[in-house]
C-alpha cells in the first residue's frame, strides 16, 4: 500500500471538518469540526514523519495536540460564557460585531 493514502485520508478529513465549520451553527459542533481538522493535519504530520524517516513530524503533532488541548479549554469556556449571557450556543446569534 502506498503510504500516501494516509495523506489522502488526511485531506479528506480536513475538508469534511472545514465543511462542518462552515455549515454547522452549534458552536460546540463547530468546535468539534475544528478538532477534526487538527487531527487530520496530525495524521498528515505522522505520515510524513514516517516517509522522511525522522521524528520531527511526530514532535510537531505532539505540540499540536498540546495546543489543541489548551484551545479546547479556552474555547469551551468562551462558549459557556456566551451561552450564559445569550441563552444560545448558535454562532449566528453572536453577530453584533458588524457594520
Amino acid at each position: 500500500m502506498n503510504p500516501m493514502n494516509y495523506v489522502y485520508l488526511s485531506a479528506l478529513l480536513f475538508s469534511i471538518g472545514a465543511a462542518g465549520v462552515l455549515l454547522r451553527r452549534n458552536a460546540i459542533v463547530v468546535f468539534m469540526c475544528v478538532e477534526l481538522m487538527l487531527n487530520a493535519t496530525n495524521l498528515a504530520f505522522v505520515a510524513f514523519a514516517r516517509m522522511q524517516g525522522n521524528l520531527d513530524g511526530q514532535v510537531i503533532a505532539f505540540f499540536v495536540m498540546v495546543v489543541a488541548a489548551a484551545e479546547v479549554v479556552i474555547g469551551l469556556a468562551i462558549i459557556v460564557t456566551i451561552f450564559r449571557t445569550r441563552r444560545s450556543a448558535s454562532v449566528d446569534s453572536a453577530n453584533l460585531l458588524k457594520y
Binding site: A18, V21, L22, R25, V91, D92, A94, N95, L96, L97, K98, Y99
Partner: peptide, 17 residues
Amino acid sequence: FRRLQTGFVRSYALSMF
C-alpha cells in the same frame, strides 16, 4: 462594501477558507 461585514462568523470563515 460595508455590507460585506455581516457579523456572521461563518461568513468570515467562508471567506478565509
